[in-house]
Design a protein around this nucleic acid. Structure first.
Lengths: 191, 191
DNA sequence: AACCTTTCTTAATCTACATTAAGTGCTTTT
DNA sequence: AAAAGCACTTAATGTAGATTAAGAAAGGTT
């Protein structure tokens, strides 16, 4: 459980008692690759923190095309934020990509914690602020950069993933077809 | 000042004293069209709330191409979130599009308020949550929808703006050139 | 090992959108 | 009122990336 406490300590400092209280609200579980943690149409009742392994979130367009919204690896949080915040059915799937140890924090427990340890409200606000900034940057990148540069940015940010997740999912993340991605990669290797 | 209090009341309820304290930290000012509230390279020291009028944020790519990140009209907040949160120089410009009455909340005053009225921490967390969800949706739309549908979504969300801001800025927002946007519009009108 | 399924590659063809360029009508400036 | 500057349009041409279709690798499963 050290990782998640470090993660928190980066933004707010908890007393040992607060740490214990926080940990008591969490559940840790190991999942095999391909486990679906959340289906589209369901209400997202947990935020997930990745102790080890990789998760991804995606949606399926018109029941055909998958679009990867995000990856989460060690030390990252993941959920369907729309559904989690609003407690309404969402459009995202969350899937385990390789055997992963995942900590779950339920929405209810999170609300509880906000009351018992108000500092955590600050912590989660900062997490979301950072997500928002990253998302805006990605949006601008998608509007202004060609696929090749979007891929470079992906590598810079998720370097560890490049050889761990299927290429077609990276293609989807940066917004191109697997075929085009393959061609682009061959082009890049020539240089 | 009623509008901003209503805005807050949607998410947290303040006592009259808290309301007064909050208002005392704000500055209201009227700006003419084309006023630049923030330049790229500067540190964003304020969040802006639009009482009336329209703001937009954008960046300039390679010193040439403008990309519109967001519009803010009556009742919306705007800032360069990256720069505002981190207090480092940002890449965004914020510009007044038509004569606007704008409330400024400085970063310092916001921090103060978080200490004096912790409920506000919750309010701003919710604001940011909503932004994040909207941003993720827009990102997915950009990855999966053709320009025409992105424009429809724009109209649904910013209907009031369609005839108020220059077309080329809408084009930029949805991620196409003004020329293509013009052609697309002509095509849509035929239907 | 043999089979099946999924991922990746290659190549031809196609299309949504970009680029370039020219022209039209506005507003703003002088 | 002319000049200048923008915003918008139209049209020709160009291209990044999609689509389709096929085969080659690479896992998984029995």
């Amino acid at each position: 459980m050290a990782l998640i406490l470090e993660n928190i300590a980066k933004h707010v400092s908890l007393t040992p008692e607060e740490q214990a209280l926080f940990l008591s609200k969490l559940e840790t579980q190991t999942y095999k690759a391909k486990t679906i943690l959340l289906n589209a149409g369901e209400i997202c009742k947990h935020s997930y923190f990745v102790n080890s392994g990789i998760l991804r979130s995606f949606n399926i367009n018109d029941n055909i095309v998958e679009h990867v919204l995000a990856f989460a690896c060690e030390g990252w949080w993941m959920s369907d934020m729309y559904s989690y915040f609003s407690q309404k059915p969402g459009q995202l799937f969350i899937e385990v990509l390789e055997e992963s140890e995942v900590i779950s924090l339920s929405k209810e427990n999170q609300e509880q914690l906000f009351l018992e340890i108000p500092k955590l409200e600050r912590f989660f606000r900062i997490l979301i602020e950072n997500s928002l900034v990253a998302n805006q940057q990605r949006l601008m990148d998608n509007l202004s950069l060609p696929a090749e540069e979007r891929f470079e940015k992906f590598c810079a940010k998720y370097g560890t993933l490049v050889h761990k997740v299927p290429q077609k999912q990276i293609a989807s993340f940066i917004g191109v077809t697997p075929e085009f991605f393959s061609k682009m990669k061959a082009r890049l290797l020539k240089k």
